[in-house]
Amino acid sequence: MSAALKLDSPTDPRDRGGPAQPLLIVENLKKYFPVRGGVLNRQVATVQAVDDVSFLVHKGETLGIVGESGCGKSTTARLLMRLMEPDAGSVVFDGDPVGDKRGISVSEMRRQMQMVFQDSYSSLNPRMTMAESIAYAPRMHGVGRKEAFERAERLLSRVGLNPALHARRYPHEMSGGQRQRVNIARALALEPRMVILDEAVAALDKSVEAQVLNLLTDLKHSLNLTYLFISHDLNVVEYMSDRVMVMYLGRVVETGPVESIYRHPRHPYTRALFASKPTLDPDRRTQEMPLTGDPPNPINPPSGCRFRTRCAFAQAICAEKPPLLAEPLAIPLAGAPEPSHLVACHLPEAQAAGASAHA
């Protein structure tokens, strides 16, 4: 990337693996949190926050991750950034294993993969001005003070802020939308190739949210970025994403192109998520609850398929073994899913047929 933060050509000089090589490959990622109790504060149980999660992100695309609170979306993001150490699994960045002597170090990976958090205020140091916050990472990586602050001012302009007005302000002097623009600028300060957006617009009102989403779209195309976009807002995910990954209780239950997932969801949990979307159409009121039953305890999740206790189509096999992500068999439905549409379900055809008959 040039000093003006714009690529001179569509090909990034750091692209060692070629355009067909996925930028990020995650295999069997796992994170359990211990639960301690008793007089001796011993471990008595574990919370299975992320359990055997695998996915990949192609160069230049946006992968959206959706799911209800507690499904493991944010924990997955923090594991990728190594803000917490995974219990198992591997991460490969552009063909290089992260943290392996044959690959790249965690520090080098962080230079090329940055993160924007949900809380725009707590993400910033209250004792630093906006320019200081943006310039901090480049200075820590050997960039001179003058050049780092010049880069900070360019980035402030790039995200729609006036350096003359905002560079010397502190976080409490900025609105939520302005602070999040600063966080985006700070994430771009090291000229990364990938940005993880963890509920980056969840705390913003709708008018500001639309502005930030348009900004992110513009930055993606002008800087040749790749996004991992985490959100609970299904409409925002549909607008931003090229592919979608649905998580439930620490596992991936469905993944595929956004058009295929939204038009022909296969997993009953995905269909329940879409059915729970509020509508402004008075003729399309929700007549029944999309889901029944309480969510399982992540300390003691159900055997086999973790969704089976809330699934109307569950059978004996669902309790015996967990389903693997696989392509559904061909079924007589108009607009059948694309080959890259994968679902972790033992009986996706029967459930799809039941959903069509119910509709």
Rank of each mutant, 00 (worst) to 15 (best):
137 A>G: 05
131 A>S: 13
3 A>S: 12
35 V>C: 11
115 M>P: 01
225 L>A: 02
14 R>L: 15
132 E>M: 02
114 Q>A: 07
291 L>P: 03
266 R>H: 09
24 L>Y: 13
321 K>Q: 10
208 V>L: 14
307 F>H: 13
181 R>M: 07
297 N>V: 08
262 Y>K: 11
246 V>I: 15
103 G>L: 06
219 L>M: 06
76 T>N: 00
128 M>Y: 13
167 A>L: 07
58 H>V: 03
105 S>F: 04
74 S>C: 01
66 V>P: 08
12 D>W: 13
177 G>M: 11
219 L>K: 08
6 K>P: 01
45 A>T: 09
342 L>W: 01
303 S>L: 14
140 M>V: 08
120 S>I: 01
51 D>R: 07
59 K>M: 00
312 A>W: 00
279 T>A: 14
178 Q>D: 15
230 I>T: 05
171 P>S: 11
40 L>K: 07
137 A>P: 06
146 K>T: 12
69 S>K: 02
100 D>S: 14
283 D>N: 12
103 G>Y: 05
128 M>V: 04
6 K>S: 10
245 M>P: 01
319 A>R: 10
302 P>D: 12
65 I>M: 14
151 R>I: 15
167 A>T: 10
199 E>R: 06
354 G>D: 03
275 A>Q: 15
28 N>T: 14
254 E>T: 12
68 E>F: 08
186 R>H: 11
165 L>S: 14
344 A>Y: 02
329 L>T: 05
273 L>K: 13
94 D>Q: 09
196 I>R: 09
134 I>P: 00
17 G>R: 11
125 N>V: 04
322 P>D: 06
286 T>I: 14
202 A>E: 05
201 V>Q: 09
322 P>V: 04
36 R>H: 14
100 D>W: 02
267 H>I: 15
12 D>I: 13
23 L>A: 13
239 Y>G: 05
268 P>Y: 12
185 A>L: 04
58 H>T: 11
201 V>K: 11
113 M>T: 12
88 A>Y: 04
205 D>N: 03
53 V>G: 00
87 D>T: 07
19 P>Q: 10
341 H>V: 00
164 A>G: 08
144 G>S: 05
1 M>C: 09
106 V>G: 02
114 Q>P: 04
150 E>Y: 00
297 N>M: 08
211 Q>L: 15
142 G>I: 08
332 P>G: 08
35 V>E: 09
249 L>W: 11
38 G>K: 08
199 E>L: 09
30 K>V: 15
72 G>K: 01
134 I>C: 01
146 K>S: 14
317 I>L: 09
351 Q>Y: 10
350 A>P: 00
136 Y>P: 02
177 G>C: 15
335 G>M: 06
303 S>V: 09
323 P>F: 07
61 E>Q: 13
139 R>V: 08
346 H>D: 02
238 E>I: 03
317 I>Y: 03
334 A>I: 04
44 V>C: 08
27 E>C: 12
247 M>P: 04
303 S>K: 15
88 A>L: 06
191 E>R: 15
176 G>E: 15
156 L>C: 09
73 K>M: 05
210 A>T: 13
261 I>P: 02
354 G>K: 02
162 N>V: 03
327 E>F: 05
357 A>S: 08
94 D>K: 08
168 R>V: 09
219 L>C: 13
75 T>M: 02
109 M>H: 11
12 D>F: 13
103 G>M: 07
256 G>W: 00
134 I>W: 02
76 T>S: 03
34 P>W: 09
